[in-house]
Computed example of a mutant assay.
Amino acid sequence: MTTAIMALSNVRDLYQQVILEHYKKPRHKGKTNPVHRQQRGHNPSCGDTIELTLKLNDAGDTIEDVKFEGEGCAIAMASADLMADVLRGKQVTEALSMVQRFQNMMKGEDEFPKELRK
């Protein structure tokens, strides 16, 4: 087996390990207390449903906590948990910018930021 194929296999194994870890033991499952913002998303093509809740600081400009509830595949649930990790502590404007950038990446209009690749 060549080094490149072994490296790809290792990355795939790590990816699967991270997804399964966040799916089986999500760190941010539930609802924030209090709920300052709430959003529900549903993918009709596969049935995944996620409800996201946010707790903001007193000024309302920083995300103090993010939690989610929902049903879906391992990738959807793990992605929600990983997203909560990234958004906690971010200013609302920065979080909205990240959402816009992610949407652009999904359309092929932007690249994944190097600082978040880990």
Results as ranks from 00 to 15, higher is better:
residue 65 D to Q: 07
residue 11 V to T: 10
residue 46 C to K: 04
residue 6 M to L: 04
residue 60 G to S: 13
residue 115 E to C: 02
residue 103 Q to C: 14
residue 15 Y to R: 06
residue 90 K to V: 09
residue 30 G to I: 03
residue 25 K to F: 10
residue 38 Q to Y: 05
residue 99 V to I: 15
residue 93 T to A: 14
residue 51 E to H: 00
residue 116 L to Y: 10
residue 8 L to V: 06
residue 110 D to A: 15
residue 13 D to P: 01
residue 3 T to Y: 02
residue 103 Q to K: 15
residue 3 T to A: 00
residue 75 I to A: 11
residue 3 T to S: 05
residue 30 G to F: 03
residue 10 N to E: 06
residue 96 L to I: 12
residue 77 M to R: 13
residue 18 V to P: 01
residue 52 L to I: 13
residue 106 M to G: 04
residue 106 M to A: 07
residue 104 N to S: 15
residue 56 L to P: 02
residue 65 D to V: 05
residue 31 K to R: 10
residue 71 E to S: 06
residue 67 K to E: 04
residue 53 T to A: 03
residue 21 E to T: 12
residue 36 H to E: 09
residue 2 T to D: 07
residue 64 E to L: 13
residue 49 T to P: 00
residue 19 I to E: 03
residue 77 M to D: 02
residue 12 R to P: 02
residue 52 L to C: 12
residue 2 T to I: 04
residue 102 F to C: 05
residue 71 E to H: 03
residue 11 V to Y: 00
residue 115 E to N: 08
residue 23 Y to S: 08
residue 103 Q to F: 11
residue 68 F to D: 02
residue 10 N to A: 05
residue 105 M to Y: 13
residue 44 P to C: 09
residue 36 H to A: 11
residue 63 I to K: 04
residue 91 Q to G: 11
residue 2 T to S: 06
residue 2 T to F: 04
residue 44 P to E: 06
residue 71 E to Y: 02
